[in-house]
């Protein structure tokens, strides 16, 4: 079966000054339904990798196949379309638009997909219900707790039924209990077959994943299948 993600000797250098190599000849294959944690210290290249996987950036060299398509050659417009229809983003700082309500935030991807207003309203309400925010659909992000905001972000990321869910330190701004709650949601999504790539620097968070990829200086240092998974999901 075709892997969902296939990085083929991907290198990313920034041409600022002497040219910093953020990713150096990285090979990564992620089959469908896998839950991957990407670890590494700051400056290891994990953010760069997430940006590349998220089609927010193009590799300097090498190829990136997303669902079989070589997106490294895509135009800016096609990258936008790809982000819109095939990827779901979850950020550390939630990244909700402050002046829009819960449902309005959830429907942003629908908006750019060109889905009609009525259908958008119905689907965003369903998604808000799904993440347990049925009672707070017309609230603004400022009126929500951190966990609730992250739930809105998850609903938004799931709205277009993405091929891959990309999460960047999703529990970084949350307290332990709320963080665990969110991790439950991720485990749940993984159990339902969603492909997830999650960047984190906390090993206890990474333990929830099927596979842990550790980056160092732009190279993959370790790539370990997590055999102990299951023991910690309810820890």
């Amino acid at each position: 079966m075709e892997p969902v993600i296939h990085l083929e000797s991907v290198t990313k250098t920034y041409c600022v000054g002497l040219g910093v190599t953020a990713l150096d000849n990285v090979e990564l294959v992620v089959p469908e339904g896998q839950y991957v944690a990407v670890m590494g210290s700051s400056g290891s290249g994990k953010s760069t990798m997430l940006n590349l996987l998220g089609c927010l950036d193009r590799p300097t060299s090498g190829k990136y196949y997303l669902g079989g398509d070589d997106v490294s050659t895509f135009s800016d417009n096609r990258l936008s379309e790809t982000r819109n229809t095939r990827l779901g983003f979850i950020f550390q700082s939630f990244n909700l638009i402050p002046w829009m309500t819960v449902t309005q935030n959830i429907e942003i991807p629908f908006f750019y997909k060109g889905i009609s207003r009525r259908k958008r309203n119905r689907k965003s309400a369903e998604l808000a219900e799904m993440v347990g925010l049925g009672q707070r659909m017309d609230h603004r992000p400022a009126e929500l707790s951190g966990g609730q905001m992250q739930r809105v972000a998850i609903a938004r990321a799931l709205s277009n039924d993405p091929l891959v869910l990309l999460a960047d330190e999703p529990t970084g701004n949350l307290d332990t209990d709320t963080g665990n709650e969110i991790m439950e949601v991720f485990s749940d999504l993984s159990a339902r077959g969603k492909t997830i790539i999650m960047v984190t620097h906390e090993s206890h968070i990474a333990e929830h994943a099927d596979r842990v990829v550790t980056l160092k200086d732009g190279r993959i240092e370790a790539d370990i299948m997590n055999s102990r998974k299951g023991h910690h999901t309810h820890g």
Binding site: N77, R83, N95, I108, P109, Y112, R156
Partner: peptide, 16 residues
Amino acid sequence: TKEIGIRRALGAKKRE
């Protein structure tokens, strides 16, 4: 700026 970044990440084209 942040709103623009969010919209771009969620699929807004430059034109939009």
